[in-house]
Amino acid sequence: MNDISFDVKTGEILGFLGPNGAGKTTTMKIITCYMPPTSGSVDVDGYSIADHSLEVRRKIGYLPELNPLYFDMNVLEYLEYAAQLHQLDKTRTKQQLSLMIEVCGLKSVRHKDIGELSKGYRQRVGLAQAMIHEPDVLILDEPTSGLDPNQIVEIRNLIKQLGRAKTVVLSTHILSEVTATCDRVIIINKGQIVADGTPSELQDKFQGSEIVALELRASVQNAMAELFPKIQAVPGVQSVEYGGANGDVHKFSIHSLKGSDVREDLFRKAVSEKWVLLEMGRKGTSLEDVFHQLTKNQ
């Protein structure tokens, strides 16, 4: 990793995006004082990780990658242990325990051994553990990896809910996660920041062509010859890809020129040619495209 520099504000959910091995986890390990940096510094709330490591660790709640847990402890025992290691006193431990059980939805499993829990519940335990001492900063390394879609939505909502009052830094290689949860995205590749901004800013900045998916019914002999040129001729269309046919249903994906919306013209064209328009949707420039652009070219 080299030359990464960024600031995070309170109440901000920052997403760390990058391909595997880009340095997301390493950055997090350094912030949480697990690994020392070879050079450079990190300050958390004014405390440097080199000189005031204990204070930094007190302010941070950390969910490491792969969410390691003690499988032989039950949920309550484990959370209590985490509270003790954060030096919470007895009354606060009690308060925080019931709060975390409540917030993270662990009530039904609180007496179960962690080893018996499903992955979704384990993830919640990991989150509860990270927040037990009410940290100002939450560092979550791939908080939704390995969960099923329902669980992902739940965990995301949980993070969003918590992120209002705290600073949250989360890493992921799932792009939709960033658009769904984060206020700000940093894309890193090969140990360097390649983009920094809100999801929509990044989309604007790196906007390429827009993609419109089109599905229509037309009884034609040869789609390539009869349909293709007509679509190509619609103003604003840059290029057309034929996506194949199913009977007389034909699929196209249409790249438009930057900044132009071709849907209206496409509709009029379909009407005038008497094609039955079955589906038309704008895929837009997703963050995915931005991500590909930024991380592909070596």
Partner: peptide, 14 residues
Amino acid sequence: KSGTIELLTTKPLH
């Protein structure tokens, strides 16, 4: 092995 060392050493402990 289980990675819990990362939890333990990122708690405010010596």
